[in-house]
Protein backbone atom coordinates (compact mmCIF):
# COMPACT_ATOMS: atom_id res chain seq x y z
CA UNK A 1 0.00 0.00 0.00
CA UNK A 2 1.25 3.46 -0.79
CA UNK A 3 0.10 6.88 0.21
CA UNK A 4 0.51 10.18 -1.57
CA UNK A 5 0.84 13.50 0.22
CA UNK A 6 -0.46 16.60 -1.47
CA UNK A 7 1.62 19.75 -1.17
CA UNK A 8 0.17 21.81 1.65
CA UNK A 9 0.91 25.17 0.06
CA UNK A 10 -1.28 24.49 -2.94
CA UNK A 11 -4.28 23.63 -0.80
CA UNK A 12 -3.78 26.69 1.30
CA UNK A 13 -3.50 29.02 -1.61
CA UNK A 14 -6.79 27.79 -3.02
CA UNK A 15 -8.95 27.09 0.00
CA UNK A 16 -7.91 29.51 2.71
CA UNK A 17 -5.95 32.46 1.53
CA UNK A 18 -3.57 33.88 4.02
CA UNK A 19 -5.09 36.81 5.90
CA UNK A 20 -3.94 39.99 4.34
CA UNK A 21 -2.68 42.93 6.18
CA UNK A 22 -6.17 44.49 6.23
CA UNK A 23 -5.40 47.24 3.72
CA UNK A 24 -8.60 48.55 2.05
CA UNK A 25 -7.24 47.87 -1.45
CA UNK A 26 -6.47 44.28 -0.58
CA UNK A 27 -9.88 43.80 1.00
CA UNK A 28 -11.51 45.22 -2.10
CA UNK A 29 -9.56 42.78 -4.25
CA UNK A 30 -10.71 39.90 -2.02
CA UNK A 31 -14.33 40.99 -2.25
CA UNK A 32 -14.06 41.29 -6.00
CA UNK A 33 -12.56 37.85 -6.25
CA UNK A 34 -15.34 36.44 -4.09
CA UNK A 35 -17.92 38.02 -6.39
CA UNK A 36 -16.58 36.44 -9.56
CA UNK A 37 -18.42 33.11 -9.18
CA UNK A 38 -21.67 34.98 -8.61
CA UNK A 39 -21.03 36.94 -11.77
CA UNK A 40 -20.83 33.71 -13.72
CA UNK A 41 -23.94 32.40 -12.04
CA UNK A 42 -25.98 35.56 -12.59
CA UNK A 43 -27.36 34.78 -16.09
CA UNK A 44 -28.55 31.35 -14.97
CA UNK A 45 -30.00 32.74 -11.76
CA UNK A 46 -31.82 35.51 -13.60
CA UNK A 47 -33.19 33.03 -16.13
CA UNK A 48 -34.31 30.67 -13.38
CA UNK A 49 -36.03 33.46 -11.48
CA UNK A 50 -37.68 34.99 -14.55
CA UNK A 51 -38.68 31.79 -16.30
CA UNK A 52 -39.32 29.47 -13.36
CA UNK A 53 -39.71 31.07 -9.96
CA UNK A 54 -41.84 34.07 -10.90
CA UNK A 55 -44.33 32.15 -13.10
CA UNK A 56 -44.67 29.35 -10.55
CA UNK A 57 -45.24 31.77 -7.68
CA UNK A 58 -47.73 33.72 -9.80
CA UNK A 59 -49.67 30.57 -10.73
CA UNK A 60 -49.77 29.47 -7.09
CA UNK A 61 -51.01 32.95 -6.20
CA UNK A 62 -53.66 32.82 -8.94
CA UNK A 63 -54.88 29.44 -7.68
CA UNK A 64 -55.87 31.07 -4.39
CA UNK A 65 -57.80 33.93 -6.02
CA UNK A 66 -61.17 34.18 -7.72
CA UNK A 67 -61.84 36.03 -10.99
CA UNK A 68 -58.12 36.39 -11.44
CA UNK A 69 -56.89 37.98 -14.70
CA UNK A 70 -60.43 38.51 -15.98
CA UNK A 71 -61.29 41.13 -13.38
CA UNK A 72 -59.27 43.95 -11.97
CA UNK A 73 -60.03 43.16 -8.33
CA UNK A 74 -59.77 39.43 -7.76
CA UNK A 75 -60.78 38.10 -4.35
CA UNK A 76 -58.79 35.76 -2.15
CA UNK A 77 -60.70 32.48 -1.82
CA UNK A 78 -58.13 30.23 -0.19
CA UNK A 79 -58.31 26.60 -1.25
CA UNK A 80 -61.78 26.83 -2.83
CA UNK A 81 -60.47 26.09 -6.33
CA UNK A 82 -58.56 23.07 -5.11
CA UNK A 83 -61.71 21.70 -3.46
CA UNK A 84 -63.71 22.38 -6.65
CA UNK A 85 -61.13 20.60 -8.76
CA UNK A 86 -60.66 17.62 -6.48
CA UNK A 87 -64.42 17.08 -6.18
CA UNK A 88 -65.01 17.44 -9.92
CA UNK A 89 -65.92 14.28 -11.81
CA UNK A 90 -64.25 15.60 -14.98
CA UNK A 91 -60.96 16.03 -13.14
CA UNK A 92 -60.91 12.41 -11.99
CA UNK A 93 -61.85 11.24 -15.48
CA UNK A 94 -58.86 13.23 -16.74
CA UNK A 95 -56.64 11.70 -14.02
CA UNK A 96 -57.74 8.17 -14.94
CA UNK A 97 -57.20 8.79 -18.65
CA UNK A 98 -53.82 10.40 -18.03
CA UNK A 99 -52.70 7.46 -15.89
CA UNK A 100 -53.74 4.96 -18.56
CA UNK A 101 -52.21 7.00 -21.38
CA UNK A 102 -48.97 7.57 -19.47
CA UNK A 103 -48.62 4.11 -17.94
CA UNK A 104 -49.21 2.22 -21.18
CA UNK A 105 -47.03 4.64 -23.15
CA UNK A 106 -44.08 4.36 -20.78
CA UNK A 107 -44.20 0.56 -20.63
CA UNK A 108 -44.61 0.21 -24.39
CA UNK A 109 -41.86 2.78 -25.07
CA UNK A 110 -39.52 0.78 -22.87
CA UNK A 111 -40.34 -2.62 -24.34
CA UNK A 112 -40.25 -1.50 -27.97
CA UNK A 113 -37.21 0.72 -27.43
CA UNK A 114 -35.31 -2.11 -25.72
CA UNK A 115 -36.29 -4.66 -28.38
CA UNK A 116 -35.18 -2.40 -31.23
CA UNK A 117 -32.00 -1.36 -29.41
CA UNK A 118 -31.05 -5.02 -28.91
CA UNK A 119 -31.84 -5.74 -32.52
CA UNK A 120 -29.54 -2.92 -33.60
CA UNK A 121 -26.82 -4.03 -31.20
CA UNK A 122 -26.72 -7.63 -32.30
CA UNK A 123 -23.75 -8.97 -34.18
CA UNK A 124 -26.01 -11.03 -36.41
CA UNK A 125 -26.83 -8.10 -38.71
CA UNK A 126 -24.33 -6.36 -40.98
CA UNK A 127 -23.28 -2.75 -40.38
CA UNK A 128 -25.05 -1.39 -43.46
CA UNK A 129 -28.32 -3.15 -42.63
CA UNK A 130 -28.07 -1.84 -39.08
CA UNK A 131 -27.60 1.71 -40.37
CA UNK A 132 -30.69 1.39 -42.59
CA UNK A 133 -32.83 0.05 -39.75
CA UNK A 134 -31.47 2.64 -37.32
CA UNK A 135 -32.60 5.38 -39.71
CA UNK A 136 -36.03 3.82 -40.16
CA UNK A 137 -36.59 3.21 -36.47
CA UNK A 138 -35.57 6.71 -35.45
CA UNK A 139 -37.87 8.40 -38.00
CA UNK A 140 -40.86 9.03 -35.68
CA UNK A 141 -38.58 11.04 -33.43
CA UNK A 142 -37.75 13.42 -36.24
CA UNK A 143 -41.33 14.60 -36.72
CA UNK A 144 -42.84 17.44 -34.73
CA UNK A 145 -46.01 16.77 -32.77
CA UNK A 146 -48.09 18.72 -35.29
CA UNK A 147 -46.86 16.54 -38.16
CA UNK A 148 -47.44 13.38 -36.14
CA UNK A 149 -51.00 14.47 -35.32
CA UNK A 150 -51.85 15.35 -38.92
CA UNK A 151 -50.23 12.19 -40.24
CA UNK A 152 -52.11 9.88 -37.91
CA UNK A 153 -55.39 11.74 -38.31
CA UNK A 154 -55.13 11.07 -42.03
CA UNK A 155 -54.08 7.46 -41.57
CA UNK A 156 -56.79 6.70 -39.02
CA UNK A 157 -59.71 8.58 -40.53
CA UNK A 158 -62.68 6.41 -41.57
CA UNK A 159 -61.61 6.63 -45.23
CA UNK A 160 -57.91 6.42 -44.37
CA UNK A 161 -55.17 3.97 -45.22
CA UNK A 162 -55.46 1.92 -42.01
CA UNK A 163 -59.14 1.18 -42.56
CA UNK A 164 -58.51 0.45 -46.23
CA UNK A 165 -55.87 -2.14 -45.33
CA UNK A 166 -58.01 -3.67 -42.60
CA UNK A 167 -61.11 -3.97 -44.75
CA UNK A 168 -59.15 -5.14 -47.79
CA UNK A 169 -57.59 -7.92 -45.74
CA UNK A 170 -61.03 -8.70 -44.21
CA UNK A 171 -59.79 -8.05 -40.68
CA UNK A 172 -62.71 -5.68 -40.12
CA UNK A 173 -66.03 -5.60 -41.92
CA UNK A 174 -66.64 -1.84 -41.76
CA UNK A 175 -64.48 1.25 -41.34
CA UNK A 176 -63.53 1.84 -37.72
CA UNK A 177 -63.76 5.42 -36.42
CA UNK A 178 -60.47 5.10 -34.55
CA UNK A 179 -60.28 8.63 -33.17
CA UNK A 180 -64.00 9.41 -33.14
CA UNK A 181 -65.39 6.38 -31.38
CA UNK A 182 -65.51 6.51 -27.55
CA UNK A 183 -64.52 2.83 -27.52
CA UNK A 184 -61.27 3.21 -29.47
CA UNK A 185 -60.14 6.84 -29.14
CA UNK A 186 -58.03 6.46 -25.98
CA UNK A 187 -56.27 3.39 -27.39
CA UNK A 188 -55.67 5.22 -30.68
CA UNK A 189 -54.05 8.30 -29.11
CA UNK A 190 -51.99 6.08 -26.79
CA UNK A 191 -50.80 4.10 -29.82
CA UNK A 192 -49.82 7.33 -31.61
CA UNK A 193 -47.89 8.48 -28.56
CA UNK A 194 -46.10 5.14 -28.34
CA UNK A 195 -45.15 5.35 -32.00
CA UNK A 196 -43.87 8.89 -31.52
CA UNK A 197 -41.84 8.23 -28.39
CA UNK A 198 -40.08 4.85 -28.57
CA UNK A 199 -37.00 6.12 -30.52
CA UNK A 200 -35.96 8.15 -27.46
CA UNK A 201 -35.61 4.92 -25.48
CA UNK A 202 -34.13 3.07 -28.40
CA UNK A 203 -31.24 5.47 -28.94
CA UNK A 204 -30.48 5.84 -25.24
CA UNK A 205 -30.63 2.09 -24.58
CA UNK A 206 -28.53 1.40 -27.66
CA UNK A 207 -25.85 3.69 -26.26
CA UNK A 208 -26.15 1.84 -22.94
CA UNK A 209 -25.90 -1.57 -24.62
CA UNK A 210 -22.81 -0.51 -26.54
CA UNK A 211 -21.21 0.45 -23.23
CA UNK A 212 -21.55 -3.03 -21.69
CA UNK A 213 -18.17 -4.77 -21.95
CA UNK A 214 -18.23 -7.87 -24.17
CA UNK A 215 -16.13 -9.64 -21.51
CA UNK A 216 -19.21 -10.01 -19.29
CA UNK A 217 -21.09 -11.93 -21.95
CA UNK A 218 -18.05 -14.06 -22.82
CA UNK A 219 -17.50 -14.96 -19.14
CA UNK A 220 -21.20 -15.82 -18.76
CA UNK A 221 -21.08 -17.96 -21.89
CA UNK A 222 -18.04 -19.79 -20.52
CA UNK A 223 -20.01 -20.39 -17.33
CA UNK A 224 -22.80 -21.93 -19.40
CA UNK A 225 -25.39 -19.13 -19.22
CA UNK A 226 -28.01 -19.22 -21.97
CA UNK A 227 -29.26 -16.13 -23.85
CA UNK A 228 -32.14 -15.43 -21.44
CA UNK A 229 -29.83 -15.75 -18.42
CA UNK A 230 -27.32 -13.38 -20.01
CA UNK A 231 -30.15 -10.93 -20.70
CA UNK A 232 -31.53 -11.00 -17.16
CA UNK A 233 -28.20 -11.22 -15.34
CA UNK A 234 -26.08 -8.83 -17.42
CA UNK A 235 -28.08 -6.68 -19.84
CA UNK A 236 -30.92 -5.61 -17.55
CA UNK A 237 -28.75 -4.87 -14.45
CA UNK A 238 -26.30 -2.90 -16.61
CA UNK A 239 -29.10 -0.89 -18.21
CA UNK A 240 -31.10 -0.48 -15.00
CA UNK A 241 -29.90 3.06 -14.14
CA UNK A 242 -30.68 4.26 -17.69
CA UNK A 243 -34.05 2.53 -17.70
CA UNK A 244 -35.10 4.05 -14.37
CA UNK A 245 -34.02 7.55 -15.34
CA UNK A 246 -35.69 7.39 -18.73
CA UNK A 247 -38.89 5.85 -17.46
CA UNK A 248 -39.23 8.61 -14.87
CA UNK A 249 -38.48 11.33 -17.42
CA UNK A 250 -40.92 9.80 -19.87
CA UNK A 251 -43.56 9.57 -17.16
CA UNK A 252 -43.16 13.28 -16.39
CA UNK A 253 -43.25 14.28 -20.07
CA UNK A 254 -46.18 12.06 -20.97
CA UNK A 255 -48.37 13.26 -18.09
CA UNK A 256 -47.95 16.73 -19.58
CA UNK A 257 -48.65 15.74 -23.19
CA UNK A 258 -51.01 18.35 -24.59
CA UNK A 259 -50.36 19.09 -28.25
CA UNK A 260 -50.88 15.54 -29.51
CA UNK A 261 -54.20 15.13 -27.70
CA UNK A 262 -55.42 18.59 -28.64
CA UNK A 263 -54.64 18.12 -32.30
CA UNK A 264 -56.06 14.64 -32.64
CA UNK A 265 -59.15 14.39 -30.43
CA UNK A 266 -59.30 17.60 -28.36
CA UNK A 267 -60.16 15.48 -25.31
CA UNK A 268 -63.20 13.91 -27.01
CA UNK A 269 -65.18 11.99 -27.99
CA UNK A 270 -67.38 12.20 -24.90
CA UNK A 271 -64.35 13.04 -22.77
CA UNK A 272 -62.71 9.66 -23.32
CA UNK A 273 -59.32 11.20 -24.12
CA UNK A 274 -59.54 14.14 -21.71
CA UNK A 275 -56.14 14.48 -20.03
CA UNK A 276 -55.02 16.73 -17.18
CA UNK A 277 -53.37 19.00 -19.74
CA UNK A 278 -56.47 19.45 -21.93
CA UNK A 279 -58.69 19.76 -18.86
CA UNK A 280 -56.50 22.61 -17.54
CA UNK A 281 -56.28 24.30 -20.95
CA UNK A 282 -60.05 24.34 -21.37
CA UNK A 283 -60.51 25.86 -17.92
CA UNK A 284 -58.10 28.66 -18.80
CA UNK A 285 -58.71 29.43 -22.45
CA UNK A 286 -62.30 28.37 -22.96
CA UNK A 287 -63.98 29.06 -19.63
CA UNK A 288 -61.51 31.82 -18.71
CA UNK A 289 -61.47 30.42 -15.15
CA UNK A 290 -57.82 31.16 -14.62
CA UNK A 291 -58.01 30.62 -10.84
CA UNK A 292 -59.39 27.09 -11.21
CA UNK A 293 -57.03 26.39 -14.10
CA UNK A 294 -54.11 27.52 -11.93
CA UNK A 295 -55.22 25.18 -9.14
CA UNK A 296 -55.32 22.33 -11.65
CA UNK A 297 -51.87 23.32 -12.94
CA UNK A 298 -50.49 23.40 -9.38
CA UNK A 299 -51.83 19.88 -8.78
CA UNK A 300 -50.05 18.72 -11.96
CA UNK A 301 -46.92 20.54 -10.76
CA UNK A 302 -47.01 18.71 -7.42
CA UNK A 303 -47.40 15.35 -9.18
CA UNK A 304 -44.49 16.24 -11.50
CA UNK A 305 -42.36 17.32 -8.55
CA UNK A 306 -42.90 14.00 -6.79
CA UNK A 307 -41.80 12.23 -9.98
CA UNK A 308 -38.90 14.64 -10.37
CA UNK A 309 -37.81 13.84 -6.81
CA UNK A 310 -37.57 10.16 -7.67
CA UNK A 311 -35.77 11.04 -10.89
CA UNK A 312 -33.15 13.10 -9.04
CA UNK A 313 -32.76 10.33 -6.47
CA UNK A 314 -32.23 7.78 -9.25
CA UNK A 315 -29.70 10.09 -10.87
CA UNK A 316 -27.80 10.48 -7.60
CA UNK A 317 -27.76 6.73 -7.05
CA UNK A 318 -26.46 6.31 -10.59
CA UNK A 319 -23.66 8.84 -10.00
Amino acid sequence: MSTTSLPVTGADSLGSPEPRSGKPAARLADARRALVPYGYLTPTMVLLVVLMVIPIVMVIGYSLMDNVIMKKNPQFVGFKHYIDILTSESFWTAVTNTLFFTGVSVIAHLLIGLAFAMMLNTGLIGTRTKAIFRTIYVLPWLFTVAIIAVLWRLLLEPNGVVNFLLTASHLTGTEVEWLSSPETALFAVTFINIWAGYPFYMTSLLAGLQGIPADYYEAAQVDGANAWQRFTAITIPQLKPIIISMALLDFIWTTQQFALIWMTTGGGPLGTTEMLSTFTYKLAFSKYQFGTASASAVIVLVISMVLAFFYVRAQKARD
Binding site: R153, E157, E177, S180, S181, T264, T265, G266
Partner: peptide
Protein backbone atom coordinates in the same frame (compact mmCIF):
# COMPACT_ATOMS: atom_id res chain seq x y z
CA UNK B 1 -73.59 11.71 -42.11
CA UNK B 2 -69.90 11.15 -42.90
CA UNK B 3 -68.17 8.98 -40.31
CA UNK B 4 -65.83 10.49 -37.74
CA UNK B 5 -68.07 13.41 -36.70
CA UNK B 6 -67.11 13.41 -33.03
CA UNK B 7 -63.51 14.48 -33.62
CA UNK B 8 -63.91 16.01 -37.05
CA UNK B 9 -62.62 19.55 -37.52
CA UNK B 10 -63.82 22.19 -39.96
CA UNK B 11 -60.81 21.53 -42.18
CA UNK B 12 -61.68 17.82 -42.37
Amino acid sequence: IAKGSFTMKEQD
